[in-house]
C-alpha cells in the first residue's frame, strides 16, 4: 500500500496496474533473462507473428521495456501476461491459455495420441492375424478335402 502511495506522490506516469506485485523484484543478468523469457510469450501486435523478444519494431521495443520494468518491480509472469491481455486481448498471448475454447488446442493432440496408439496397437494385432480367409466357405471340393484330411 505504501508503495502505491509513494507512486502516486511521485506522479509516475505508470498505466493502470491496480494490483500490487505478487513476486519479488528481479535485477541484473537474471532480469535480462526473465525479460527475454516473458517477452517471448507475448506477440508483437504490429508484426507477422513474431514475439516481442524477437521483433525489432519500436512497438515491440516499448513493450519489452514495459515487461522489463514490471519484472524489476516484482510483478509475476502471470500478472504481466494478464496485463497485456487486458489491453490487447488473447491475441497477444503466444501460448494459448488452458481455459475455455482454447483449451481444445492442447487437448486435441493428446486425445489424438491416445486414440492413435489404440488404433496402431489394434492394427498390429490384426496384422498378426494375417489376411482374411481367402477360401470361400461354400466351396464343396475344399470342404471335402478338409473332411478327408481331418478324418486322418
Amino acid at each position: 500500500m505504501i508503495f502505491l502511495f509513494v507512486l502516486t506522490l511521485l506522479q509516475v506516469k505508470v498505466p493502470d496496474i491496480a494490483e500490487a506485485p505478487k513476486g519479488l523484484p528481479v535485477a541484473g543478468a537474471m532480469l535480462d533473462q526473465r525479460t527475454n523469457e516473458v517477452a517471448s510469450l507475448l506477440r508483437c501486435p504490429v508484426c507477422q507473428g513474431l514475439s516481442v523478444a524477437d521483433s525489432p519494431s519500436t512497438m515491440a521495443q516499448d513493450m519489452k521495456h514495459q515487461v522489463r520494468e514490471l519484472l524489476a518491480r516484482g510483478y509475476t509472469q502471470e500478472q504481466i501476461l494478464a496485463y497485456f491481455e487486458r489491453s490487447y486481448g488473447q491475441f497477444v498471448l503466444l501460448k494459448p491459455k488452458f481455459q475455455g475454447v482454447s483449451a481444445m488446442v492442447w487437448l486435441l493432440p493428446i486425445a489424438a495420441l491416445i486414440f492413435g496408439a489404440i488404433v496402431v496397437l489394434s492394427k498390429a494385432k490384426q496384422l498378426e492375424q494375417g489376411p482374411a480367409e481367402a477360401a470361400p466357405a461354400d466351396d464343396p471340393y475344399l470342404a471335402r478335402v478338409r473332411e478327408l484330411v481331418e478324418k486322418q
Partner: peptide, 13 residues
C-alpha cells in the same frame, strides 16, 4: 514518450 499509454490501450498501429 515511453509508449506505455499506447500499450495500456492495446494500440497495435
Amino acid at each position: 514518450e515511453s509508449g506505455k499509454t499506447a500499450i495500456a490501450y492495446g494500440v497495435g498501429g
